[in-house]
Amino acid sequence: MKRILVIGIGAGDPDYLTVQAINALNAADVFFVMDKGAAKDKLVALRKEICARFIKDHDYRMVEATSPERRRDEGIDYKAAVDELNRDKQAVFERLIEDELGAGQCGAFLVWGDPSLYDSTIRILDAILAEGRLAFDFEVIPGISSVQALAAKHRVPLNFIGRPVNITTGRRLAEGGFPHDVDSAVVMLDAQNAYTQLEGADLDIYWGAYVGTPDEILMSGPLDAVKDEIVRVRAQAREANGWIMDTYLLRKRGVKE
């Protein structure tokens, strides 16, 4: 039986790898690496660095495949575009598992951050198994997410005492505003700077881009005071690197711990 490991490698810093993740690296025969283009070569390089650093006395090989891109046509439904993207990825994953992994071998996908949070690798593997054409076992190894890394870098807890925290997307924040009945909200996948629409909401923001990497940028303060500077710095960083990966925490001001 073929075996697949979905390994969370943390949010950029190789030191974020857990002992469980390192043990999993040393159990894999083949690593499947999804190439997302020249602008994101650093993401592929980091995966190779992690393997070179932590795998000891174990032969392995890497197989790179071009990652499909999500359609961004004007007017296309976001959910439909993501579903289409995952079907395209499923076809790539199926080919890799069938053609590049021998019977009894162990293959691995190295997932940025944690595989359970805004990543579709688990869903795609479940879909492959549901179709019944390929048979394999798979295991998920958790990783340190950008959410955890962001809070640690800013030295703040995610929640106030006894209060919930909401994890949402920039798209949802833009549609519905700051979530109701919470004092803290973590926002991911915000391509349009949705926080700028919350002027006057009396919030603090803790923002980070490329958290855990050498390109890391951190900014924080009252939202109204720093939002324009974050927009400027974010645009500058995206222009310089060709891509941006950022996360931020919004917290109501004046709430007692």
Score class of each variant (00 low, 15 high):
residue 1 M to S: 14
residue 4 I to N: 02
residue 7 I to Q: 02
residue 9 I to C: 01
residue 14 P to S: 10
residue 15 D to F: 14
residue 17 L to T: 08
residue 18 T to I: 08
residue 19 V to H: 07
residue 22 I to A: 02
residue 24 A to G: 01
residue 25 L to R: 00
residue 25 L to G: 00
residue 25 L to N: 04
residue 33 V to C: 02
residue 33 V to E: 04
residue 34 M to K: 04
residue 39 A to Y: 09
residue 43 L to M: 02
residue 43 L to F: 11
residue 48 K to M: 09
residue 48 K to Q: 08
residue 51 C to D: 02
residue 51 C to L: 04
residue 52 A to H: 12
residue 55 I to N: 02
residue 55 I to H: 00
residue 56 K to W: 12
residue 60 Y to F: 14
residue 61 R to E: 09
residue 61 R to K: 01
residue 67 S to A: 09
residue 73 D to G: 04
residue 80 A to P: 06
residue 81 A to C: 05
residue 82 V to A: 10
residue 84 E to N: 14
residue 84 E to H: 06
residue 86 N to K: 01
residue 86 N to T: 12
residue 88 D to Q: 13
residue 90 Q to S: 02
residue 90 Q to L: 01
residue 93 F to V: 04
residue 95 R to Q: 13
residue 98 E to D: 08
residue 101 L to V: 13
residue 102 G to H: 11
residue 104 G to E: 03
residue 106 C to G: 12
residue 108 A to G: 03
residue 112 W to D: 09
residue 112 W to C: 04
residue 113 G to P: 07
residue 115 P to A: 02
residue 115 P to S: 02
residue 120 S to D: 08
residue 125 L to A: 02
residue 126 D to W: 04
residue 126 D to Y: 05
residue 127 A to G: 12
residue 129 L to A: 08
residue 130 A to W: 08
residue 131 E to W: 02
residue 133 R to I: 09
residue 136 F to I: 14
residue 137 D to E: 13
residue 138 F to Y: 14
residue 139 E to D: 13
residue 140 V to M: 03
residue 140 V to C: 03
residue 144 I to E: 04
residue 146 S to C: 12
residue 146 S to G: 00
residue 148 Q to V: 15
residue 152 A to K: 10
residue 153 K to R: 14
residue 153 K to M: 13
residue 156 V to T: 12
residue 158 L to N: 07
residue 162 G to L: 09
residue 162 G to H: 07
residue 162 G to Y: 15
residue 164 P to I: 15
residue 164 P to V: 14
residue 165 V to E: 07
residue 165 V to L: 03
residue 168 T to S: 02
residue 170 G to D: 08
residue 172 R to T: 12
residue 173 L to Q: 06
residue 175 E to G: 10
residue 179 P to N: 14
residue 179 P to H: 11
residue 186 V to Q: 12
residue 186 V to P: 00
residue 189 L to Q: 07
residue 190 D to I: 12
residue 191 A to C: 06
residue 191 A to I: 11
residue 192 Q to M: 10
residue 194 A to V: 05
residue 195 Y to T: 15
residue 196 T to P: 11
residue 197 Q to N: 14
residue 198 L to A: 13
residue 204 D to Y: 13
residue 204 D to E: 15
residue 205 I to M: 00
residue 205 I to A: 01
residue 206 Y to M: 03
residue 211 V to N: 05
residue 212 G to A: 01
residue 213 T to N: 09
residue 215 D to W: 14
residue 219 M to F: 04
residue 220 S to H: 10
residue 222 P to G: 07
residue 222 P to S: 11
residue 224 D to I: 09
residue 224 D to R: 00
residue 226 V to G: 03
residue 226 V to R: 00
residue 226 V to S: 00
residue 233 V to E: 12
residue 234 R to D: 01
residue 238 R to N: 09
residue 239 E to F: 05
residue 240 A to R: 14
residue 240 A to N: 11
residue 250 L to N: 03
residue 253 R to L: 04
residue 253 R to E: 08
residue 254 G to N: 06
